[in-house]
Amino acid sequence: MRLEPVANPGWPRTLGLPALALGGTVAIAMALSLVAGSNPLAVLGLIVKGAVGSKFALLETLNRATPLIFTGLAVAVAFRAKLWNIGAEAQLYMGALLAVVLGTGLLPLPAVLLLPILMLAAIAGGALMLLGPAFLKTRLGVDEVVTTLLLNFVMILFVSMLLEGPLKDPMGMGWPKSERLVAEARLPRIVDGLRLHWGFGLALICALLVWVMQTRTTLGYEIRAVGLNQRAAAFAGIPVTKVVIKTALISGGLAGLAGFSEVAGLKGSLTLDLSPGFGYTGIIVAMLALLNPLGVVVSALFVAGVFVGADSMSRAAAVPTYIADILLATALLLMVLAIMLTRFRVVRG
């Protein structure tokens, strides 16, 4: 078999195939429910209800989506330039770490000053975390997939070391957790009484900014060109190395903000379970959104909904919550396949 480009794909192709991918994902969810000995339709119902069925569920989904928007954007920006940043997890923790170091009483400032400083620190921390691998890639040709992946493990050990050492909360009853942020360092809630903090608003603003950057600025054009064909971009006079480094700074910074938002908005202190893999899930979010920054918001909400829904479902039915990860992996693989098949048809011979 080989692949042949489709000149003018009609709507059955462009819409039908992605719909089929989603349908396939749902079918697998139902099959897995059967395997676990539960009624498939009931399980699906419980997942949807757990994700959006009540005000509490909806807010939980929005809260869960917040870090995913940041990490999804981080991945989307980087992948657009074919900079394979798999280290959003480490960058997230670096952002959270700096927010905690500066926000637990070190800087006696009012919130209007302290919050922007913490934000900038988190951005800088995340960016620095990716700068190393980006330099190794551009200067020495070291593959960034492996370096960013391995740094995730190093970073979590580093955080663990600090939480058992200098950053340990003396009042923490021996648990490895940092002191709480001062009140001035906390992100306020968007509406009083509703458990949704301004991190969500910040995430939406970032999505808009990244979209503007990608579609309306020279840098956005350059990133796209570098991602499409590095050699051609260099030939056209685009400073490829500089563009890759800038991309890395933006990507790492966005992931750093995820850490800031989680600590300052939701948790209030740093623990080792701050992120249950938000950095890795950001890759799925970005891919499902086809690397489109505004699409990232939608897909982050979808992915968060699946996680929150599956958590709630697994408390009621005997289906393990890992079904969420299986579904997302399936959705990811089927979706990239479907998108490819909208542009190519399979020919025999």
Partner: peptide
């Protein structure tokens, strides 16, 4: 398909299927 995306997808799928 992109070997990066497929590979990471397989890692997630395999790990999650195992835990499930």
């Amino acid at each position: 398909l992109s070997q990066h995306v497929v590979g990471l997808g397989i890692t997630l799928l395999a790990t999650a299927s195992t835990y499930f």
